[in-house]
């Protein structure tokens, strides 16, 4: 597996992947370039989070490392954040805490 650096912020881990990973934390409004087109992030995302490299239809497999890692539960547009809100496991549901793992004040 040789990852490809798509722009300074995005890494595609396998040529078959329809998502790329953020190479570092990107603030809300930050610009990502995918095939010459610019997209602005709607929220701050930590490094490693996934971004759609092309439009993905509902039910389509999400491909990372060249392998399926789940299915889209809604239509996902190019440049969108791909995470718990729009994909699901094909094996077991994902367990999360309601407020994330942040500590209370």
């Amino acid at each position: 597996m040789v990852p490809t650096q798509l722009d300074s912020l995005l890494i595609q881990l396998h040529p078959d992947d329809n998502i790329a990973c953020l190479a570092r934390t990107v603030e809300r409004g930050g610009t990502l370039t995918i095939e010459g087109q610019e997209f602005n992030l709607k929220m701050t995302l930590g490094l490693g989070h996934k971004i759609a490299l092309r439009d993905i239809s509902m039910g389509e497999k999400i491909i990372k490392f060249g392998a399926p890692i789940g299915s889209a539960v809604e239509r996902i547009s190019t440049g969108e954040h791909v995470h718990l809100h729009n994909i699901k496991s094909d094996y077991l549901p994902t367990y999360t805490l309601e407020e994330g793992s942040k500590y209370g004040d």
Binding site: S89, Y91, T94, S101
Partner: peptide, 17 residues
């Protein structure tokens, strides 16, 4: 599955990922 909430905060979404 073997998946903790911190995994999701860190950008992992599914068990197979």
């Amino acid at each position: 599955g073997s998946f903790a909430p911190g995994n999701a905060d860190g950008g992992l979404t599914t068990l197979e990922e």
